[in-house]
Design a protein around this nucleic acid. Sequence first.
DNA 1: CCAATTTCAGAGTAACTGATATCG
DNA 2: CCGATATCAGTTACTCTGAAATTG
Lengths: 150, 150
Amino acid sequence: MTDSGEERDDVSLVYVVGRVNQGIRREMRQHLGQWELGVPEFTALSILRRRPGLSNAQLARRSMVTPQTMIEILAGLEARGLVQRAGDPDHGRILRAQLTRAGEQLLDSTEPGIEQIQEKILAGVPKRQQQIVMDVMLRAMERLRPGLDN
Amino acid sequence: MTDSGEERDDVSLVYVVGRVNQGIRREMRQHLGQWELGVPEFTALSILRRRPGLSNAQLARRSMVTPQTMIEILAGLEARGLVQRAGDPDHGRILRAQLTRAGEQLLDSTEPGIEQIQEKILAGVPKRQQQIVMDVMLRAMERLRPGLDN
DNA sequence: CCAATTTCAGAGTAACTGATATCG
DNA sequence: CCGATATCAGTTACTCTGAAATTG
């Protein structure tokens, strides 16, 4: 049996965000599989390229996961030589992470496919609307972040 | 160390959707915990209330998960008496699901808290912008759906 | 025979809570 | 001592792939 379309009314944002994310993750997983890279790993690499020198705790906050979760992701990336970490000279305990050359290269190979997913789901959507979606989602992120601080 | 704010530039939609979803799921999990309900279970119940009589396969498509994943969720809900399923009279194999009285009541108790999460992240966002976000996200859902059909 | 549905079984991914140690 | 960080260990939550049976 074939399924009919979805109506525009009475559906919550929480719901659509969840469903869209589910679909995106599925495609990402499939795409990233060829490099043995998981979605959380890809996400961490992406953030680190934009923000070299983040600590594990900072990275966790940006990813909206607990530091315990992030440490595992980071440990895996470090073990594979995609990320390297060095102690902050002014702060004994903090370890600042950044991509290695290999990490950058791997990220470069994977990203076109990810952008393709994005283009696929945004095809034909006016730039102005895209901008509004980004703004609203970024505000949502900020509202969600505080509850995450340990 | 405290973290600085996020910039509006050069961040992808795929990224923000993922992060917002992560934050939403965390709050949902925390809220739903008191009823021993997981996020996928809540999602299935929500869909079923809006669409009584969906089959497992249809439910899977709407949730953007495989039918094998959905069958487990559904089986759990049925075992707990929150959902009941009956064979389609015109179609021997298909089982159509709907909420039981208990399922409806449980959903009623949980929903206010979920709406609260939504209000929290959308506070102060103009209705027009909210509508645009919904439209764009619903379009994204449609684009993501086909790849899911087995 | 083919396509869709249901469903079992096993595996893999992703994320969490608790606890400990260190540093400023 | 307190707050933030790092990190180990164990556990839970979620989703997938493979395969088999059933039905129209």
